[in-house]
Simulated scan of single mutants.
Amino acid sequence: MTDTALVIGGTRFIGRHTVEDLLDHGYAVAIFNRGNHENPFADDDRVTHVEGDRKDEMDLKAAKLSIEPDIVIDCVAYQPADVEAAVDIFADVDAYVYISSGAAYGREEIPKREGETPLCDCTPEQAASDSDASYGPRKAEGDRIVFDAAMDGVNAMSIRPCIVYGPDDYTERLDYWIHRVETYDRVVVPGDGTNVWHRAYVKDVASALRVVAERGTPGESYNVGDRRLVTLEEMVECIADAADTSVEVVHAGERELAAAGLEPDDFILYREYPHVLDTNKLADLGWDSTPLDEAMAVSVDDYRDSDRDGSEWDPGRDAEESVLEILDTL
């Protein structure tokens, strides 16, 4: 008998790739959302669409009754109240998997480990917020709700991805760097190029959700990220290889950037203190990540087929040219 998966979300980025992964592994799949975004599975008779608002408990209950899912993947639980409702409504499913975040960790250490690195605290005001500043605390509180639910017998688990990249990424964070590599011969990288912000390929996040649903332990969380980490400079070089081109990486320190009105943090995917997640716990379930060159090649091809350019994150090429002129005189 075919197992049924209900994906809360399911049409954008992580949710979309999760649906594809589940289909590839023989699941009958239903997606539950408000229908505000284009449904890439509208013509796929293997995917059932249930329209509703995940904030409305009656809608969630109706989706459960109509689909009768074996597993539930929750891609769009952004506030603790969302998780609280879900672990109650889906208390009797074989597995409920909540997407938390590496941002849930409340202490900077290398690497961050499940069950060892403390999570963020979350105030009632943060729990009800939708600000960027409260994102980590809200995700951490969702984790704690999952842990409590498991103590009450719910087969609830969570995964904590780091920065996610890959096809269909509407955040366009990696697209900024792909655009730079494909457009210019010289690419400005802040600092000495060795900073590390752990990243996770979206298809690997999708497979992790399924693997945790199938083999995970209730009440546990699992970090998700590329098994091979690269520095920011190495990422730019990996993009260049995937794009079959070459670029000169130019390092710019704080002084040179400041002369052009820039700061290192103006460059997306730069992080002063390394953010690294230990992924051994997930690997012990039999999960593995996609080789980095393969993941980047797919990401570059998807970028070329899209109208994305990462311009939202652009610090300004004129300012970068000023930095290059300064560095050329040194």
Rank of each mutant, 00 (worst) to 15 (best):
D192Q: 12
D266E: 10
S221F: 05
Y78D: 08
E84F: 08
V164L: 04
V154L: 12
K112I: 02
S158W: 10
A319W: 05
V247F: 10
E248Y: 00
T329P: 05
T18L: 06
N223G: 07
D175L: 06
L292K: 00
K203A: 14
S131E: 13
S101R: 00
H251I: 01
V196E: 04
E57M: 07
V188H: 08
Y201N: 03
C162S: 14
Y303R: 11
V83L: 09
D301R: 14
I8D: 02
L23V: 07
L174Y: 10
D309E: 05
K281S: 12
L257Y: 03
H179R: 14
E254I: 10
P161A: 01
D288F: 05
V50Y: 11
E125W: 06
V300L: 05
T48I: 08
D301P: 09
A128S: 15
K203F: 08
N280A: 15
M58F: 12
E248D: 13
I178R: 07
A128Q: 15
Q126T: 03
R16I: 11
A283I: 03
K64R: 15
L292N: 03
V298S: 14
E125C: 02
E116C: 00
S134F: 01
A91F: 11
R12A: 06
D148N: 13
S322N: 12
T117R: 11
P291A: 04
A260L: 00
T4Q: 07
G10A: 10
D318P: 04
A95I: 12
D88R: 15
G9S: 03
Y270P: 02
D265S: 15
F32Q: 08
Y27F: 14
D152I: 02
A149R: 10
A206D: 04
I67F: 11
Q79N: 09
A81S: 15
V230Q: 10
D266N: 13
N36S: 13
E248W: 03
D168Q: 15
